[in-house]
């Protein structure tokens, strides 16, 4: 198992380096002289010089990148072009909100998707299956941000069950924390839940015809164990694969959702810094996102080892 993790890390780290290079290269896309373009509206010569300094534009490109990378490894991503706030601390301050939102949304997606997919897959062709399959098609297609708006309309405005906007740290009480996050997290969870449900349905329907499920039945295990233990662990592999892809998409969705729900997270920071073209901040956010996603992929890869013992010895 440890070997498996080590092997995955060996693939992940070079990828992360390439990713960081792409992130840094974004500066090269800035039209004209980046220092002038990015220094703000009608910049003074001092502001331009400061921006040039901050962006490290005085050196050859590859040297610039190297400096940036060395600093980034030490969690120093430079400072905002606007308020000179260190990028790292800005991100750190906003990470808890985004992680709360993401983890909650992923949990909802898994619970909803696996439950619906299992029910459908146990009885292919039944009405439960048809309802679940149809809902999944709709769930994949509806825009998550629109779902968020509709949830606000229904459960915050028309029936005021939950707050429409805002975020409360978990330290201030789990219930208020959850009540603020439930609508945005649900909005983010719908599409991944639909995809997971589809995949689970197919996998469960497939696995239930396997001989070892019949063996489990022949042992006299209760239905819940036949399905919950013997079928689901084998059905999990393809589901875990889509989980990785969906987690990626869900994290992208936090940008819009945090904006709609006024959640002070990394997504909102991404939006404001993109809008003001605060490149150091944008780069810091991108790198954070990439690390988060590569971590999730690593977890997914490692979980293969848990679900499929044959992978472990490779």
């Amino acid at each position: 198992m440890l070997l498996l993790i080590a092997r995955r890390l060996l693939v992940t780290i070079p990828l992360l380096i390439l990713v960081s290079f792409l992130i840094y290269s974004l500066i090269a896309l800035v039209p004209g002289d980046p220092a002038v373009t990015l220094a703000g509206q009608d910049p003074t010569p001092e502001q331009i010089a400061a921006a040039r300094e901050e962006l490290g534009l005085t050196d050859p490109f590859i040297v610039q990148y190297w400096h940036w990378l060395v600093n980034a490894v030490q969690l120093d991503f430079g400072a905002s072009l606007f308020n000179s706030e260190p990028v790292a601390s800005a991100i750190a301050a906003r990470l808890p909100a985004t992680l709360s939102l993401t983890v909650l949304a992923l949990l909802i997606a898994i619970l909803l998707g696996v439950a619906a997919g299992t029910l459908a897959g146990l009885r292919p062709g039944s009405w439960i299956d048809r309802v679940a399959t149809f809902s999944a098609s709709v769930g994949v297609a509806v825009p998550y941000f629109w779902v968020g708006m509709i949830l606000v309309l229904l459960f915050a405005i028309q029936t005021p069950l939950f707050p429409a906007i805002g975020y409360v740290p978990i330290g201030d009480g789990v219930l208020t924390w959850a009540s603020h996050l439930i609508l945005p997290a649900t909005a983010l969870a719908i599409a991944p839940a639909a995809v997971i449900a589809r995949q689970t349905r197919a996998a469960v329907a497939n696995v239930m015809t396997e001989d070892y499920v019949r063996t489990a039945e022949a042992k006299g295990l209760p239905r819940s164990r036949v399905v919950g233990k013997h079928a689901l662990k084998n059905a999990a592999l393809p589901v875990v694969t889509v989980f990785g892809i969906e987690a990626n998409r869900l994290i992208g969705g936090t940008v819009v959702i945090e904006q709609l729900f006024a959640i002070p997270g990394v997504g909102q920071l991404a939006f404001t810094s993109v809008f003001s073209r605060d490149m150091p901040m944008v780069q810091g956010v991108l790198l954070t996102t990439a690390v988060l996603i590569l971590l999730i992929n690593l977890l997914v890869d490692v979980s293969y080892g848990y679900f499929n013992p044959r992978v472990r010895q490779l």
């Binding site: 396997e210 001989d211 070892y212 019949r214 063996t215 489990a216 039945e217 022949a218 042992k219 006299g220 295990l221 209760p222 233990k229 013997h230 662990k233 084998n234 679900f307 499929n308 013992p309 044959r310």
Partner: peptide, 30 residues
């Protein structure tokens, strides 16, 4: 009642040894 009987009072050895064991659990566990 049938589930109490299966595996306890009546058990079955299946024809297909290669596919009748669950690949995701140890033999001992099963």
């Amino acid at each position: 009642r049938l589930r109490q009987i299966r595996g306890n009072e009546i058990s079955m050895i299946f024809q297909e040894p290669m596919t009748s064991l669950n690949p995701a659990f140890t033999v001992g566990d099963q």
